[in-house]
Nucleic acid binder design. Sequence first.
DNA 1: GGACCTTGAGAGAGCGCTCTCTTGACAGTG
DNA 2: CACTGTCAAGAGAGCGCTCTCTCAAGGTCC
Lengths: 339, 339
Amino acid sequence: MKQDTSGTRPAPTLEMVAALAGVSRATVSRVVNDVPSVDEDIAAKVRQAILAVNYTPNRAARSLASRKPNSITLIVPESTSKVFADPFFASVVQGVALYLAETDYTLNMVIASEAKPEKTRAFLLGGNVAGALVVSHHAGDRSWAHVSDHIPMVFAGRPLAEGGSYYVDVNNEAAAEGATRLLVKGGRTHIATIAGPQDMPPGVDRITGWRNALEASGLDDSLVEYGDFTLSSGAKAMRRLLERGKPIDGLFVANDQMAAGAYTVLQERGIRIPDDVAVVGFDDDSFATSVNPQLTTVHHPIIEMGKKMAEILVDLIEGKPTDRVTRIPTSLVIRDSAS
Amino acid sequence: MKQDTSGTRPAPTLEMVAALAGVSRATVSRVVNDVPSVDEDIAAKVRQAILAVNYTPNRAARSLASRKPNSITLIVPESTSKVFADPFFASVVQGVALYLAETDYTLNMVIASEAKPEKTRAFLLGGNVAGALVVSHHAGDRSWAHVSDHIPMVFAGRPLAEGGSYYVDVNNEAAAEGATRLLVKGGRTHIATIAGPQDMPPGVDRITGWRNALEASGLDDSLVEYGDFTLSSGAKAMRRLLERGKPIDGLFVANDQMAAGAYTVLQERGIRIPDDVAVVGFDDDSFATSVNPQLTTVHHPIIEMGKKMAEILVDLIEGKPTDRVTRIPTSLVIRDSAS
DNA sequence: GGACCTTGAGAGAGCGCTCTCTTGACAGTG
DNA sequence: CACTGTCAAGAGAGCGCTCTCTCAAGGTCC
């Protein structure tokens, strides 16, 4: 284990493999790239030589010669990166990385500095990147419009202002409606919601779903308070909800973290879950199972989203026809807070 | 905003800039790379041409010609990636990305599949990567030994079996000792701990620090229960601690999440924090401020760790002499649960 | 048996850079 | 004034690949 880092002997090249196998460079290249028109005997010999010298193609040379970049960039706006405490980002990355591992693309990451956006832009437009993925809490930021004219881009989540960009999302509205319907089916008639910020698409879509379910059943939809997706904001919203003095027997919360906040308030007042108030959350993150009773919630398949984003981007890069909008199905996870 | 992706005109090259500025390719290259021996008038003309055509160097060509890779890989073992719910990973990435943004290196990420480790290995050793960073919960995995013979590597956290690898860590032991000392100074004499798993370095170092502080003050160090860093394990450990029936007036918990778990148990039994039991946590993550009363804890500068890891790796790549072990200083954040 | 394909492999020209080497201009020296 | 030294800029050879072209060897067909 040592610093011979400098003395490292150079990596084997195509040329070396070719010499060893007694064929031309071109033939080795064909074998490496699975071009069918190679005699199987020769191909076998080449493969053996590749193994013998432990050859790995040089990506830089490949990219240069083929005139196409082989890396995909994941962009995280600086402001989003500050909210890193939420596991969303990490899971998306995981999904993306998992998918790309099976392709020839390499995943690289940049934090887009809001201070000097041109830097990121130059990097993306410099011909070094085959496509980009954007994970932002302010999805669909118009600021990428110019970039997406030049390289394919896929966004995580529906942009607030839909502008024709490709994106992958869950159907927040339908999922929220389903979650609320569970409450209705459970016989709850005074169903409140703690909604998310209305400047984020999930915030608006989830409250819309809640409202749809109530309207369909002719129930009151005035019991709304807003939070900002944080635990403490959930607690505060719950407090405001209770202060209204109206009866509440069901609660749909726009994310699990706020639900956990609501729990603390409910429990400190001796309100039983689910007996007095049945609660349904959204996301199915670690908060859902760390509270007591465990939270019934909508499973948000974030890793799948990452995979799908990567898949779509690769299709786009390779010119395959692709739908602009992809919705990953969600599912309701029934635990103890509502059933 | 459209699919002219294919029809995209090629990116400007050095050659084009040279032609426009009326100099040779070599001179433009010098200007781009800040080689001092260029006449300032000429350099200015070149810079202007660069701006005019909006030139960005092609990284692949650069890497090829200079015979050195310009990307740094962040490796996340698959098993770690499953624990993605914890914000550690995301923050390290953030730190790394922030540092590398100021350099010429590009950050790429791989999830090391445990099923086929050769794939990752081949990628790393194929000459495509200048160095690697490993973020693992089982730090210092021996499996990287072979790789680190060939390319520089830096690990996050002290490896369990120290083997001469470079790593960045906080001084868990000293920090835990300091945290416990706060409790002692506060007049607490029956100080328990909820420790982490003893097969992870932070787990063992933090309990050692706690023990050191107690020994120095001649206090009882038998009040120990173990958790696995999750919220529910913290609650369970707290329960076991209380069941011992011995008095407890101070508590050091090896991470904030377990402390939050301990809170629930303490509070359901009507034990007041900090009046009856003063609590100090570790990490200063989102749990610390989302509990009530807010948690006094050790600030774990994860982003700084990421930055430092990247810095050290770059130094290593560039052959600068570097210390094997780097410890980032921690600080005690006094909030309401102990002071 | 010659014209015409087909098929498989080699030759060789780049891809956009870096970097060594060379050249040319000019100043300083005896 | 020829000679050397210095320094800035150009020439040009690659880096490790891909990919088009070319060519040789064998069919096939009339």
